[in-house]
Amino acid sequence: MAGVLDSVNQRTQLVGQNRLELLLFTLKGEQTYGINVFKVKEVLQCPPLNEIPNRHPVVRGVAHIRGGTIAVMDMNLSIGRGPLDDIEKCFVIITEYNRSTQGFLVGSVERIININWESIHPPPKGVGKENYLTAVTQIENQMVEIIDVEKILAEVSPLSEEISSGVIEDGIGEKVIQKHILIVDDSMIARKQIQRVVEQMGIKTTLRKDGREALEYLESLVNEGKNVAEELILIISDIEMPEMDGYTFTAEIRANPALASLFIVLHTSLSGVFNEAMVKKVGADSFVAKFHPDDLARLVNDRVLQMTGESLLEENEE
């Protein structure tokens, strides 16, 4: 138990300093790619793969690993390129996203680096909206491309964005018709997923792609003389973002008297135990794991009732 707690403490210190660790890998050729170590459970030489009928084209097969069966996706195929060759010489990066485990076939795995989020930037505008990058950085004069894994997973195994019946109250959006929710996420797919859930509730949204951009937006509202807490129902923020991560974004909000009272939800596919520690450390109000529309809708529903005083009234009536 002490070892687990030490690990939590080390990782929370890392992310609390606006830093992350990237696992670097290659596919075909010399281009280097990266993935956040937080998402990685294991890296191993590609095991024997069993083909399955009617599988998605990017799924090379399934593997039996540590007593479980996981799908192994060809990362090169996933980003719209050709299949990797000689897969027995390739590696599999086993990751955990959205409460599920999957494997990504890559050509080689290089090393882990520790880097500041400020050194990671959004993809250049010229790459277009259909690219598979969520960010880029430079390591030793070499460009490293960070792949939008959530986009890949949304295409291979689309998640439902529909809210189940009975999860939210009828007319919940009418209670906050003049207010909106700020959604902050570097993945365009993730932003749109959250937006569609919130708009099903009849609530308006504002989108920003990273913590720094979102903070500048909030500060601009303050400079215009607006009461931001009156306009925003809550902020739904990713944790892993270029320029400024969600933890630092939250800490910056809490340090600004004009913004400090905002309700902040960290919405993430990272491990829950680390998030529980960091929610307390940086002062966020809650976190919800990606991507479960009912959980997200329920949290927004409860926040609206809290703002309007109806949840407190119901408790008193009981």
Results as ranks from 00 to 15, higher is better:
residue 38 F to R: 12
residue 120 I to S: 05
residue 97 Y to S: 13
residue 127 V to L: 13
residue 71 A to K: 10
residue 31 Q to D: 08
residue 90 C to F: 02
residue 63 A to E: 05
residue 126 G to S: 15
residue 111 R to G: 04
residue 33 Y to K: 11
residue 53 P to N: 11
residue 50 N to P: 01
residue 128 G to K: 07
residue 48 P to L: 12
residue 121 H to F: 05
residue 111 R to Q: 13
residue 90 C to V: 02
residue 73 M to G: 02
residue 102 Q to F: 15
residue 59 V to W: 02
residue 38 F to V: 10
residue 82 G to Q: 05
residue 66 R to S: 04
residue 67 G to H: 07
residue 115 I to E: 06
residue 88 E to S: 15
residue 75 M to H: 03
residue 82 G to M: 02
residue 41 K to A: 06
residue 39 K to F: 11
residue 120 I to T: 07
residue 72 V to R: 08
residue 95 T to A: 15
residue 130 E to K: 10
residue 51 E to A: 09
residue 37 V to A: 09
residue 70 I to E: 04
residue 51 E to T: 10
residue 114 N to T: 15
residue 39 K to P: 11
residue 32 T to E: 14
residue 65 I to M: 03
residue 111 R to E: 07
residue 62 V to N: 07
residue 113 I to E: 07
residue 68 G to W: 03
residue 116 N to G: 06
residue 86 D to G: 12
residue 120 I to N: 04
residue 125 K to Q: 10
residue 52 I to N: 08
residue 75 M to I: 05
residue 38 F to Y: 08
residue 47 P to G: 12
residue 59 V to A: 12
residue 126 G to P: 04
residue 93 I to H: 02
residue 43 V to C: 05
residue 101 T to G: 01
residue 97 Y to L: 15
residue 108 S to C: 09
residue 71 A to M: 11
residue 57 P to I: 01
residue 60 R to T: 09
residue 42 E to P: 00
residue 90 C to E: 09
residue 45 Q to L: 13
residue 86 D to C: 15
residue 88 E to F: 12
residue 95 T to V: 15
residue 81 R to F: 08
residue 36 N to K: 06
residue 86 D to A: 14
residue 124 P to E: 09
residue 99 R to C: 04
residue 96 E to K: 11
residue 76 N to G: 08
residue 102 Q to Y: 14
residue 93 I to P: 05
residue 91 F to M: 12
residue 121 H to W: 05
residue 54 N to P: 12
residue 55 R to C: 15
residue 73 M to E: 08
residue 52 I to F: 07
residue 47 P to W: 12
residue 46 C to S: 12
residue 58 V to W: 10
residue 42 E to A: 00
residue 53 P to R: 12
residue 97 Y to A: 14
residue 34 G to Y: 00
residue 65 I to S: 04
residue 129 K to Q: 07
residue 107 G to S: 06
residue 69 T to Q: 04
residue 102 Q to I: 15
residue 121 H to K: 11
residue 113 I to K: 01
residue 65 I to G: 02
residue 81 R to T: 01
residue 92 V to T: 05
residue 108 S to K: 15
residue 122 P to E: 09
residue 88 E to T: 13
residue 116 N to L: 06
residue 80 G to W: 08
residue 37 V to N: 03
residue 84 L to N: 05
residue 106 V to P: 03
residue 124 P to L: 12
residue 68 G to Y: 01
residue 41 K to C: 04
residue 39 K to R: 14
residue 59 V to R: 01
residue 39 K to W: 10
residue 75 M to K: 02
